[in-house]
Amino acid sequence: MIANPKSSSQAQGQDGQMEAVYGLPEVLAIYQRALQGFCQQERGQRPLCVKAVARKKGNGRAIGGIQYFTLEDRGTKFEARASNGLEIPYNREGEFMVLLGVANWNRPPLMPQLEVVAIRRQAEQVQPNQEERLAKWQWAIVRRRREVEPLFELEGLKIAVVTTRGGEAWSDVESPVSEFRELVRIEGIWARMSDPQSVAEALVTACRKEAGYHMVILARGGGEAIEALDDEHLLNLVVRSPLPVVTAIGHTRDTLILDRIADKSLATPRECGLWLRTNLERAFLKKKSLVHAQELKALERVPQLEASMLHLAQEVKRWKRRYWLVVWLWLVTMLAIVWLWSGAENWWLRL
């Protein structure tokens, strides 16, 4: 409990007057009352309606007639408390009437708690926690991934990047591969990356056959509401995508189910850009070495071709001689036949 700020000792100041001496608990109590007074001044005693999902803390047991839990919404968490008589719909999305103020600052870090005074509405659908969602998508996590690296050897490689228009994520992905324009064509498909529905629509657009893409990259930086991308509809689209899906979402510390089910996952958009550059360099060097090997092979065949041409020329000369020999033989034969025929006619006349 917070100590009463009135419980302080008295000390004599330099001017001889008695001054109050406070301990640190009393100082925290002063801060708490000041903040509560400010919040009450802003809202009075009117409660706020907050839409969130309630999660139990620890074993969920009430302490001193008070139950403690957390309220979560799109990655943001707030500690909360309510009287034991109030039935909290745990793991369900609901609308909670809360008092805007500081319920308790009794432990570090100095985090405020919301005090829930009523439940306005609760959703019927149960919202699974992270462990339950991981178990649900375990089949997609352990399935065999499609290989992405062999795509870099394709002629006319075309990649779609689903990201925010003009954002840093687009620059981090596109800039490192600017010198490989002849090998790859990278196009942006713009979406609101904090809205899973917008990302899902962009992914569907990229996967259309007429678009002609070979790979789709989902890229965004870190920040609030990044957990919203673990949307059920978006996860289903990624798993059933006809094209390989690469994710480059958040900072290094961020891990999503979306990253675990993607065909390839990079920690950040910048790392994705460097990964693209590395694979394009490898593909370029491989093509260059292949062309060089073909040139060497062609040069090695030059002597063989020259020998073949010489042999062919000799054969042509031989057949040419044979041709003229046949012609001369034919002419001699014809002359002989004419002579013999003319001689036979003269012999018949003499008879």
Rank of each mutant, 00 (worst) to 15 (best):
D172W: 01
G166H: 05
L114H: 04
Q122W: 04
E131K: 15
V162R: 07
D172V: 01
A160M: 04
A160G: 02
E153T: 10
L100K: 09
P109Y: 02
E187V: 04
V161S: 01
Q125A: 15
A169R: 00
E131P: 01
W170D: 02
Q130S: 14
E93D: 06
V184W: 00
M111C: 15
F180T: 08
G167E: 10
V161C: 03
I141E: 05
L151W: 00
A169M: 08
N129Y: 04
P128M: 01
V161N: 07
E149I: 13
P112R: 13
G101F: 05
P128W: 02
K158Q: 13
A118D: 14
E124L: 03
E93Q: 11
E115R: 14
L154E: 03
N106M: 13
Q130E: 15
I88G: 06
V177D: 04
F152C: 09
A169T: 01
W137C: 04
L151A: 04
A140T: 08
N104T: 12
L134E: 09
L100P: 13
W139D: 11
W139V: 14
V126H: 07
V117R: 07
W105M: 13
D172P: 00
S171P: 03
E115Q: 14
D172R: 01
R145C: 02
E168W: 07
Q122T: 11
G94A: 15
P176E: 06
L114R: 01
P89K: 02
E147S: 12
L100Y: 12
E95M: 09
I186L: 12
Q122C: 12
R121Q: 13
I186E: 07
I141M: 10
V184L: 01
V162E: 01
A123D: 15
I186D: 00
F152W: 00
T163F: 08
A169D: 05
A123P: 10
E182D: 15
V161I: 03
V184E: 03
E168K: 03
I186F: 00
L110M: 15
E147D: 09
R185T: 12
E115M: 11
V162T: 05
Q113L: 07
W105D: 02
R165D: 12
N129H: 06
V126W: 11
V116C: 04
R92I: 01
L114P: 00
P108C: 02
S175R: 14
L100C: 14
I141K: 10
E93T: 01
T164D: 06
V142K: 14
E95N: 07
V142W: 13
R165F: 08
P150K: 12
E87D: 14
W137Q: 03
V98M: 08
P109H: 04
V177R: 00
T164S: 14
V161P: 05
E115Y: 13
R143P: 00
G166Y: 11
Q113H: 15
E182V: 12
T164H: 07
I119W: 03
N91F: 09
L183N: 06
R120K: 15
G167S: 15
E153H: 08
S171A: 15
P150L: 03
V162S: 00
R144K: 13
A140V: 04
P112L: 06
A123L: 15
W105N: 12
L183C: 05
